[in-house]
């Protein structure tokens, strides 16, 4: 399972530095008990750019991130609009309770910040923030981030390596707390727009039941991440 995950990781950090406008520091903390963030994509961009929008259908590139942790599509979307991008700052997954800290230089026109990472183990859950207006006065600003459901895949809670686009199932549980043999929760998606994730259900049956997820480990309540932006 870990092998599959690491195949998703790319270790380059791209911090484009055109006309310098603002030097900011970002610290992101995983506030969950048992959920892992796949490689983060963080970007400053113009006011019109969105990686996702609440209540709107996910793009194919968002779907690839949310179902399989693949951020390459969203990365190219950001490059098209000359975003200032930090790709995979944690050099892999961000574990429960862990933080990542990094600096960004943002261009004058890139006034808004977006961030995404898939939550493992979920079918198409992700942590994100959509186009937050960056503060410009020196200081420290704290935000709490919610878990979203991309609305692209039913939450059957079966771990079968399914990732990417349109393959029903969860890629992996990096923490190794999941069970096997789950028959799957009903494969219906009632809200096919990006919405607030209702949470994992899980069960207490490690070798059967409906869900492969563990109901004492894999649940959460919002918020799932703490974002601290320091403007220098």
């Amino acid at each position: 399972m870990k092998k599959q995950l690491s195949a998703l990781l790319t270790l380059t950090v791209l911090a484009s530095t055109p006309v310098m406008a603002q030097d900011i520091n970002i610290k992101l903390t995983n506030l969950t008990n048992g959920l892992y963030f796949t490689p983060l994509l963080v970007a400053a961009h113009d006011v019109n750019t969105h990686l996702f929008m609440e209540g709107s259908s996910a793009s194919v590139n968002l779907q690839k991130m949310a179902e399989g942790g693949d951020i390459r599509g969203l990365l190219s979307d950001l490059q098209v609009v000359s975003g200032d991008v930090v790709e995979n700052p944690a050099a892999g997954q961000l574990d429960p309770g862990e933080s990542v800290n990094f600096n960004m230089m943002t261009n004058d026109s890139n006034t808004h910040l977006s961030l995404t990472a898939m939550l493992l183990p979920t079918n198409d859950g992700f942590v994100g923030i959509d186009s937050l207006e960056l503060p410009t006065s020196a200081g420290t600003y704290t935000y709490y981030l919610n878990a979203y459901d991309a609305g692209t895949e039913a939450n059957n809670e079966v771990i079968n390596g399914g990732d990417g686009q349109g393959v029903l199932g969860i890629p992996a549980d990096p923490g190794g707390n999941a069970g096997t043999g789950g028959t799957g929760l009903p494969a219906t998606e009632n809200n096919m727009t990006v919405h607030i994730h209702r949470g994992n259900l899980g069960d207490d049956n490690a070798s059967g039941g409906e869900s492969d997820l563990n109901n004492t480990v894999h649940r959460w309540l919002n918020p799932v991440a703490k974002l601290v932006i320091t403007v220098n």
Binding site: N146, A147, I196, H197, R198, G199, L201, N222
Partner: peptide, 18 residues
Amino acid sequence: VDGLATSALDQSHRFDNP
């Protein structure tokens, strides 16, 4: 499906804020 046998709701009705 989560401990309240007399509930008419299924797992899809669960919610978190907001």
